[in-house]
């Protein structure tokens, strides 16, 4: 259940951004979450609701944009979707695969009123 720490980190960042942009109310937080992170979306939104209760962020909508796991072969340049966590190039069978998508975990934007 590290989603609780993640929810707290999101709140810390959003509060800093609210102060920086002199915003008093936020309606939506948009997150980008890669498939290859240990974050369970339902669990994250649940934790978020739980710890924002009776706070200025209560009721804020959390929208998650999920990013599939994709790789690029360092040997032949092939880009492909990684299935079943096989980090092996389907074109040339090389194991030198760089992850290009799926590890994201960031706050993209907030919708302020």
């Amino acid at each position: 259940m590290h989603e609780m720490s993640i929810a707290q980190s999101i709140i810390d960042i959003v509060q800093q951004e609210m102060a920086r942009h002199q915003v008093s109310r936020v309606s939506v937080i948009r997150l980008v979450v890669g498939e290859f992170t240990a974050v369970v979306p339902d669990s994250l939104t649940f934790c978020f609701e739980l710890i924002t209760k009776d706070s200025p962020l209560e009721g804020v909508k959390v929208e998650l944009e999920q990013v599939p796991l994709t790789g690029r072969c360092r040997a032949c340049g092939e880009e492909f979707t990684i299935r079943e966590y096989r980090f092996v190039c389907p074109a040339c069978q090389s194991g030198e695969v760089e992850t290009v998508g799926g590890k994201e975990l960031f706050i993209k934007e907030i919708e302020a009123e």
Partner: peptide, 8 residues
């Protein structure tokens, strides 16, 4: 919209 782009 306020862009944030910060790692959680």
């Amino acid at each position: 919209k306020v862009p944030v782009v910060r790692n959680v």
